[in-house]
Every structure is written in C-alpha cells, then in structure tokens.
C-alpha cells in the first residue's frame, strides 16, 4: 500500500498529515520534498545512514574531439557548447542523461559521477524512514527522488510526503500510489491550488480524499468544492493554538488526545478507501 500526500499549495500541512498518519498507521514514512525536507523534525529517526546521490556528467577528451558538434546538437539542456576551440561542459545544466556520450562518434566523451544530493535511510519509532536533500547550489530534485524510490523495499506499506506544487517532482511522488490524500486549508489560495492538484491526480487515475487543515469547523469554501467534485473529506484538523504550539515544538500532533482521535478517524477512512481502491483495480 502506497499513500501519497500532496496539496498544491505549500505550507498547508502535508508533513503534518504525513508524519502523524504514518505514526498512527505504523508504516514507513518517505519524505520526497528534497528541496526542503522536514519530516525528520517530527519523526526523529534514529540510525540514519547517509549516502550520496550522483548523476553521470560528461568529460570531454579534447585530444580525441574533432569539434564535430554532434554532442552540442544532441544535448537538450544546453549543457554543452562548441567555442570553435573546444567543447565546454556546464555541469549545473547537465541532467545526466548520457545522450552526448552515446552520440559522440569519436568516443571522446566519458562520464564521471557528480554528487547532486544525499539520501537518508533509518527508522523511527514505528517503522522505516527515508528522505533526501539536494546539495547546495544544485537544482535537480528528480534524480534524488528516483533514488529514494529505488531504496524502498518492495511491498512495504508507506506514506509519501510530496513536494508542493504540481511539478514533475510531485508526479514522481504520486506515481504508483494506491491512494492520494489532498491536504488543503480553507482559504481561496488553498482551494485554487487544491484544484490544480486534484486535476493532476485525476489525470493519473488515482483515487483521492481531502483533509482540511487549520479548519474553522465549518469550511464551506472547501466543503462545497468537495461536494461538487464528489470527493470525500477524510477529516479536519482544527485551527487551534494547542495544535500550533505542539507543531512549533517539533512534536507530533497526535500527542494531543483530541487530535489523536481525528487521526484515528482519518486512518480508518483511508484504510477503507485503499481497500476499496485495491479491490477495484
């Protein structure tokens, strides 16, 4: 069972929902927000093993190179340029696809592994913990997310904490999920980005439900939309000082009995929905 948590808008409570629900369900937690990972603050994983994430980056053998320009024309990311004297490589533009070295008729291009980030594997109180982080000044999250994905043992139940937005990185997180949880807040901005995220998940044909964070108890803005779109509201996390205080101390909200009850309710509904989704797929 794989559950993806996303939101569209940033700062709506993806990590709050992901960490608390993973804990409540006792399943693995995976932080795919490698641009700004923060699940570790709440789950406090132990025995973290750190490893490098590399992409293969071209090196030009200028003696073999005939300046034929084929590599420059092959590169889709403008990482190579022919100055008439040599081929220059801009490593931060390279996506590591390897097309240039395949295309080079002179075999003048070799590749070396260049570090673009790190990933972490460990355990938290209930299950396994995975996360990653981009290296300073490196712009590519995709390969780090893919590498974390490869590390998750097959068949393990897990919750994926996606990055904000509806970018390729979010698609990577949602891909292969049995169910998606859309976290939103009762604001116009929250609703706007929720709609974008719902559109994405619909396109990927994955069943989903909504959690309203910072709920005012009655949230017609979101509730009307959910009703019109035939989406189930799995639960509401109240907009309360108590919740804000627990969060600011880096603790799990389920330490508060009233909120624990809410998450138990969410867990029950998610399990029902996932069972339903799996039996109908």
């Amino acid at each position: 069972m794989k559950i993806a948590v996303l939101s569209g808008k940033g700062g709506t409570g993806k990590t709050t929902v992901s960490t608390n629900l993973a804990y409540a369900m006792g399943i693995d937690y995976v932080d795919f927000d490698v641009e700004e990972p923060n699940g570790h603050i709440f789950l406090k994983p132990r025995d973290l093993k750190e490893s490098d994430v590399n992409i293969m980056t071209p090196v030009i053998d200028q003696d073999r190179c005939t300046l034929c320009n084929i590599c420059v024309e092959t590169c889709q990311f403008n990482a190579l340029v022919n100055t008439g004297k040599r081929i220059l490589v801009f490593e931060d533009l390279c996506h590591g696809c390897g097309a240039c070295s395949l295309a080079c008729p002179e075999k003048a291009i070799s590749e070396y592994p260049r570090k673009i980030g790190v990933l972490f594997e460990g355990t938290y109180e209930k299950a396994d913990f995975f996360s990653g982080r981009m290296a300073l000044n490196e712009p590519m999250a995709g390969p780090i997310i893919s590498e974390i994905k490869r590390r998750i043992p097959k068949g393990r139940d897990h919750i994926v904490d996606c990055s904000p937005g509806t970018s390729c990185n979010v698609v990577k997180g949602v891909d292969g999920a049995d169910y998606a949880i859309m976290v939103t807040e009762p604001s116009v901005f929250g609703l706007h980005d929720l709609k974008l995220a719902v559109e994405l998940v619909e396109e990927m044909d994955i069943p989903m439900g909504i959690i309203i964070n910072r709920s005012n108890e009655y949230d017609p803005l979101i509730e009307d939309y959910a009703k019109d779109s035939n989406l189930r509201i799995l639960g509401k996390i109240p907009f309360s000082k108590a919740a804000a205080k627990i969060y600011s101390e880096g603790k799990l909200l389920i330490e508060e009995p009233a909120i624990k009850e809410i998450f138990e309710g969410i867990k029950k509904q998610v399990l029902e929905e996932v069972d339903h989704a799996i039996s109908h797929s």
Binding site: V72, F77, N78, A79, V81, N82, G84, F90, L93
Partner: peptide, 18 residues
C-alpha cells in the same frame, strides 16, 4: 529559439553568436 528555454538560454545564445 532559446528565448523560452527553461535553463541554459545564455549558453544557447552564445553558440548562435559563435
């Protein structure tokens, strides 16, 4: 053609100039 590139527009432009 590099006007709307996601990245590397300056590199692409330089190649055009060369």
């Amino acid at each position: 053609p590099g006007q709307y590139e996601n990245s590397g527009a300056g590199v692409k432009a330089s190649q055009i100039v060369i």
